Computed example of a mutant assay.
Amino acid sequence: MRRVALVTLVVDDYDEAIRFYTEALGFRLVEDTPRPDGSRWVVVEPGTGAEDAAGHGTGLVLGRAKDEAQRARVGDQTGGRVGFFLHTDDFARDHERMRAAGVTFLEEPRHEPYGSVVVFEDLYGNRWDLLQPAPDA
């Protein structure tokens, strides 16, 4: 079996990123391990039920920017495009919970042939789709 296990997301601060992803988006903190250089290995996962045999799905490594070049990419890792896609099995539930948690939505929810979708921004301005695929999609 092959799968994308982790994707790095460059952030300004570990703790504020952990709070946003766990509290506002409902992800679970999988690992937060200090490293000898003062950085941390931080992994969060949405906990979607699509985990592998070891209990892991695709996760985000929250990597604190180390220099000016990396700080310049915080919030713009995909050039303003939607770069991350959070699938859900209950669009209304997750949209309402995220809205109540203060997540910034850039549009009203849409119901497309492929499913229900809305674009939102994470803590730093990266664009995401919250998407419940249509049953036949």
Rank of each mutant, 00 (worst) to 15 (best):
A101F: 08
E16R: 15
V118E: 02
D122H: 06
R99A: 15
G47A: 07
H87V: 11
A72H: 04
L62W: 08
G26C: 01
H111R: 10
T104V: 08
L131N: 13
F20N: 02
L25V: 08
D15Y: 05
G57N: 05
A134V: 02
Q132T: 11
V103F: 03
F120M: 09
L9A: 10
R64N: 04
L106A: 12
V118C: 09
V44D: 00
F120I: 05
T58I: 03
V82Y: 09
H111Y: 05
D67Q: 04
R71P: 03
V10M: 07
D89G: 14
G38P: 04
E23I: 00
P135L: 11
G75C: 03
L123Q: 03
P109M: 10
A17V: 01
H56N: 12
G55R: 02
R3L: 13
D12R: 12
G80R: 11
A100S: 11
V74N: 10
R28M: 03
G63Y: 07
D15H: 10
G79T: 04
Q70A: 14
A5S: 13
V119P: 06
V117S: 13
T104E: 12
L130K: 03
V7H: 04
D76T: 14
G55E: 11
G26K: 02
R19C: 02
V117Y: 08
L6K: 08
G79D: 05
G115Y: 01
T88C: 15
L123R: 06
T48W: 14
A65Y: 05
R40F: 07
R40A: 06
A72R: 09
R93G: 13
A24N: 12
N126C: 11
I18N: 00
D15M: 07
A24F: 04
Y21Q: 06
A50L: 10
F84K: 08
R81Q: 12
T78Y: 15
S116N: 13
L130V: 13
F84C: 10
Y14M: 01
T22A: 01
R64H: 01
E107D: 15
V74S: 07
W128I: 08
A72L: 08
A92T: 13
V103C: 05
P46A: 04
A54Q: 15
D37W: 10
D13M: 06
Y114G: 11
R19I: 03
T104S: 11
V42W: 04
V119T: 15
R35L: 15
E108G: 12
L130N: 02
G75R: 07
D12W: 00
E31T: 08
L60V: 07
E108T: 15
V118M: 08
L123V: 06
H95V: 05
T22S: 10
P109G: 10
D37L: 02
P46G: 03
E45V: 06
Q70C: 01
L9I: 12
D94I: 09
E68H: 00
G125Q: 08
L29C: 00
G47D: 13
A53F: 11
A54C: 06
D89N: 13
V74E: 05
E23L: 02
Y14T: 01
G80H: 08
E45I: 12
R2M: 12
M98H: 14
H56G: 07
S116D: 15
V74Q: 04
H111T: 13
E68Q: 09
G47I: 10
